[in-house]
Amino acid sequence: MKVVITSSGSTLQDKVDARFGRCPFFVFYDTDNKQTEILPNPNMDADEGAGPAAVRFVASRNVKKSISGEFGFKIKSLMDSAGIQMIVVKADKTVKEIIDLLNN
């Protein structure tokens, strides 16, 4: 299963980003083959609609779970229709710590 984690930086040692739509990086993690892929958020600085654009971005990568510090209210219905579960975590953890939790 593919999971996306919002990250404040481009490494696994960076902290989870508190925002979903406007996070700097997305970390895609596959719980089956343990592969990670780190991609910059192309819509981080969008004038409007960064949240919906982010849902579109992660949904096109067949993500089933998303983990972030916060999700904007506009995207709940889009996440539901894309079949992506939203999990809110405290943004004081590193991405690596979240991945370790996923594996336990």
């Binding site: 819509n43 969008a46 004038d47 409007e48 609609g49 960064a50 919906p52 654009a53 849902v55 579109r56 949904a59 096109s60 067949n62 889009l78 229709s81 894309a82 079949g83």
Partner: peptide, 15 residues
């Protein structure tokens, strides 16, 4: 330019 079209091609979704 306004991210007003929500599309997921592999799920045939467009709003």
């Amino acid at each position: 330019d306004y991210n007003a079209i929500f599309i997921i091609p592999n799920q045939s979704q467009l709003h």
